[in-house]
């Protein structure tokens, strides 16, 4: 759903900014967060710059407690290792810290998700002869396995929120209900999907994602039209609190806008 720049100007913020702010609000101070590349890194750092100064940001490059004051272009920039409480090897970050269950929140982006928060970052089309070859798994499969909970952030479209994934790179709630428990996955999996249009949350009973909040100016019908499966809608759908002045200032300062 293309955003009209005139709308963004009238509101004073873009839908991408709303997405980042809403994703940042999912993190609380004092939690430990394994930060994925791209949108999650911006959102996690916004949380640290605003309401959650004590959030511990952990990057798969081995940086624990990184405190960058501007957006790093990758997950291994000098600003991350220079500001970290500890810098360790990559085998250690995955084994001693992630796999051992020390991390509260995994913050992931995705090319595609389905109604159970399963993630595809591998291919669009057939694996053997893909239409689009995506980067692949990176750290995400084990972040999705071992963090106590997972937050997913991505832009909303019928191509990104799809009925059936072409490939399950990282498992969310599988096929629903007690799938994760049956498979012996330690964490609770994805609990929220934050997009540029809405907030979806995992239904505790069915494990399917449900529309709980639309961002200001977005209609429920817009969200349904932009979702590739018949999205369930909560009995009461709220309107996301718009970005505050402080949130926007911190975000723009961080990304250098």
């Amino acid at each position: 759903m293309a955003e009209q720049s005139v709308d963004a100007e009238a509101r004073g913020w873009t839908r991408d900014e709303m997405m980042t702010v809403a994703a940042a609000r999912e993190l609380t101070s004092g939690t430990t967060c394994f930060v994925g590349i791209g949108l999650p890194s911006t959102a996690a750092n916004l949380a640290r710059a605003t309401h959650a100064p004590d959030v511990v940001l952990i990057y798969e490059s081995g940086c624990i407690g990184a405190k960058p004051d501007r957006l790093p272009p990758s997950i291994g920039d000098a600003i991350l290792s220079r500001t970290a409480d500890a810098v360790i090897s990559v085998p250690e970050i995955f084994a001693y810290w992630l796999q051992a269950g020390r991390i509260d929140v995994g913050f992931l982006g995705a090319a595609q998700v389905d109604r159970f928060g399963n993630i595809n970052t591998t291919v669009v089309g057939d694996y053997g002869s893909p239409t689009v070859r995506l980067p692949g798994a990176g750290g995400a499969p084990e972040i999705a396995t071992s963090c106590a909970r997972v937050i997913i952030t991505l832009r909303h479209s019928p191509r990104s929120l799809v009925e059936t994934l072409d490939f399950i790179t990282s498992v969310g709630q599988g096929d629903g209900r007690d799938y994760r428990a049956k498979l012996g996955l330690p964490g609770s999996g994805p609990q929220a999907i934050i997009t540029d249009l809405a907030v979806l949350r995992c239904d505790p009973e069915t494990s399917e994602f449900v529309l709980v909040s639309v961002h200001p100016g977005v209609e429920i019908a817009d969200v349904l039209a932009q979702t590739g499966w018949p999205l369930r809608v909560a009995d009461h759908v709220g309107v996301t609190t718009p970005p505050t002045h402080d949130e926007l200032r911190a975000l723009r300062n961080f990304v250098g806008a």
Partner: peptide
Amino acid sequence: LRGYAGTDL
């Protein structure tokens, strides 16, 4: 490792 379970990988 404790990984890959449930994935197509």
